[in-house]
Amino acid sequence: MNTLKIAVQKSGRLSEKSLQLLEECGIKISNGERKLKAVAQNFPIEILFLRDDDIPQYVEQGVADIGVLGENEVWEKDKQVNIIEQLGFAGCRMSLAIPKDEIYTDLNYFQGKRIATSYPKILNNFFAKNNISVLIEEISGSVEIATSIGLADAVFDIVSTGSTLLMNGLKEVETVTKSEAVLISNKNLSQENQVILDKLLFRIKAVREGKRNKYILLNAPNSAIDEICSVLPGMKSPTILPLVEKDWSSLHSVIQEDDYWQIIEQLKNLGAEGILIIPIEKMIR
Rank of each mutant, 00 (worst) to 15 (best):
I225R: 08
I204N: 07
P221S: 11
L218P: 00
I204G: 00
T239E: 06
L218I: 00
I240P: 10
S237Q: 09
L200T: 08
C229K: 12
D226K: 05
V207E: 03
K211L: 12
P238Q: 02
K236L: 08
N222Q: 09
M235S: 14
K205I: 10
K205N: 06
R212W: 04
I225M: 02
V244T: 15
R203K: 12
D226S: 07
I228Q: 06
G234P: 12
F202K: 14
I204Y: 07
E227A: 13
P242A: 13
G234I: 05
C229Q: 04
K246I: 09
A220I: 14
I240A: 12
E245L: 03
D198W: 08
R208D: 02
D247F: 07
S230F: 03
I225W: 00
K199M: 09
L218C: 09
S230G: 01
D247M: 10
G210S: 13
P233E: 04
L218M: 02
K236N: 15
P233L: 06
E209I: 02
L200W: 01
F202Y: 13
I196H: 00
S249K: 03
K211G: 10
K214T: 00
N219R: 11
M235W: 11
L197R: 01
C229A: 12
K214R: 13
P221L: 02
S223Y: 05
I196Q: 01
V207C: 00
K246N: 15
P238A: 13
P221F: 02
V244I: 14
I196V: 05
N219S: 14
F202G: 14
V195T: 10
A224N: 11
I240K: 06
S230K: 11
I216Y: 00
M235T: 15
E209P: 01
E227I: 03
C229N: 07
Q194T: 14
N219H: 15
S250N: 11
N193A: 06
F202N: 14
F202S: 10
I240T: 15
N193Q: 14
I204K: 02
N213T: 14
W248A: 05
S237Y: 12
L232E: 08
L243Q: 04
R203T: 15
E245G: 06
E245C: 02
N193M: 03
L197F: 09
I225G: 03
A220M: 01
N213Q: 04
S249C: 04
I228A: 05
K211H: 12
N219M: 11
G210D: 01
E227S: 13
A206S: 13
A220D: 04
T239D: 11
T239K: 11
V207F: 05
K236M: 14
K214G: 05
I204A: 03
R212G: 06
D247W: 02
I204T: 03
V195H: 04
E209M: 00
A224Y: 07
L243T: 04
L218W: 04
C229L: 05
L241G: 08
N213P: 03
Y215M: 07
R203P: 05
V207H: 08
R212Y: 06
V231D: 09
K236H: 15
D226I: 08
S237T: 11
E209F: 05
L241R: 09
L241K: 07
Y215Q: 06
R203I: 06
L200H: 07
S230R: 07
Y215I: 11
S223C: 01
W248T: 13
I240L: 03
I196C: 10
V231H: 08
A224C: 12
L217H: 04
D226E: 04
A206D: 12
A220F: 01
K246P: 15
L232M: 14
P233T: 11
C229E: 06
